[in-house]
Amino acid sequence: MDRREISRINVKFGKFLDPFLILGILLILTISILAVDSLSPRTFSKEQMKNVLGIQEESIVDFELIRGNHNYITSERLDEISKNYFKYTTVVVKPPEGRISKPIIKIRGIQKDTNVKIHLNYTNLNNSKISIFDKSQNTSYILQQNSQNYTQNINLTQNSDTLYLIIENSRPVFFNQYIEINFFLNP
């Protein structure tokens, strides 16, 4: 096929490609705008605006670290980073095969239902199943399973009392491991 023939075909059928070019332009525009929007920095931890009328309707929920000796779950810390953001960290000492658990957080001061977003921020226990167990609701919330992370939303009621950390391993781990979990109240 020589150049003149290609040019003739282009003149004859090229106009039918124009709608696809318009679609292509729109697609590039939309993709770039959505990508930029998706990449905008966000936070779960929005500070509450001060009530100008001086009426405080927000209930104050308090998270308290449950200390105590445990063979594997050690060096626990619970830091209140901001009013509605708590960071829990622990070192898991050479966890064995099977399941280990420990009560980690005592919840106080719930006057009405409160939503908590739980996010496993970091761990090097990549092959373990890590979950949070709410004793009052008898429900387990998986944060990591098969190396996949899940952010969980828990609804805390007035009966909510204690949260447990549960770690399940299919084989023993021979090194100390680190876990960091974020708790966001009313995200």
Partner: peptide, 11 residues
């Protein structure tokens, strides 16, 4: 649409 998002720990 874009599943990956960046979150910061405070406002």
């Amino acid at each position: 649409i874009y599943s990956l998002q960046i979150y910061f720990t405070n406002q």
